[in-house]
């Protein structure tokens, strides 16, 4: 339990750094730390396949994309302060804790279901084999739709980032 607390602390700290650090590059690095923490949580939750996917796809591929764009754009670090910015910021700092309070209330008041499912884990729980079986039996249509989504996103990204000759 101690190690879970430590990971939770690191996750929340890195999330705060993502939001509040001025440099986008440092934000990207702390986001990778946050994603690795969540991958470790997946390991504690018997989700080995998701642990691997989180590290490979999220911390690997998607974050490389972010690092690449941050490097490419060479952004100026300071963000200009516009009229109304202070009010928006103050409202965000009020709304954030309210959101946490609402979510925590909902989580505490939900029915406890641990007693209803006392059984242990099936031997394949969280493995690639069982997820694959679910994906290709129960969720086959959704899986195909996801593949179409990825193709559309790929075409869209190419079209959007293309340099127009005119």
């Amino acid at each position: 339990m101690l190690i879970i607390n430590v990971i939770a602390f690191v996750a929340i700290f890195s999330a705060l750094m993502v939001v509040f650090h001025r440099s986008p590059m440092v934000s990207v690095v702390f986001l990778i730390v946050n994603l690795v923490c969540i991958a470790l949580f997946f390991l504690f939750l018997h989700a080995q396949f998701l642990f691997a996917i989180q590290l490979i796809v999220y911390a690997g591929a998607i974050m490389v994309l972010f690092v690449f764009v941050v490097m490419l754009l060479n952004l100026r670090q300071e963000e200009e302060q516009r009229p109304g910015w202070r009010i928006q910021r103050a409202l965000a700092f009020v709304a954030g804790p309210l959101l946490v309070g609402a979510l925590w209330t909902a989580l505490w008041r939900r029915g406890r279901s641990s007693e209803a499912f006392p059984g242990g884990f099936s031997s394949g729980f969280g493995t690639a084999e069982d997820i694959g079986r679910l994906l290709f039996n129960d969720y086959l249509f959704q899986f195909e739709a996801a593949s179409v989504l990825l193709v559309v996103a790929m075409i869209g990204a190419v079209v959007l980032a293309r340099r127009r000759e005119s």
Binding site: A8, A11, I12, A15, L16, V18, V19, P24, S27, V28, L31, N34, L35, F41, Y58, I62, F66, V69, V70, L73, L75, E79, E80, R82, Q88, R89, L91, A92, F93, A95, G96, P97, L99, V100, L103, W104, L107
Partner: peptide, 29 residues
Amino acid sequence: LVAAVLFAIGAIGVLIRRNAIVVLMCIEL
């Protein structure tokens, strides 16, 4: 509960940051 805190931090980030890349990172969060 940890996830709720992380979600709220991401939501605050979307509201207060003006850099589009950081906003996208907060959505990932």
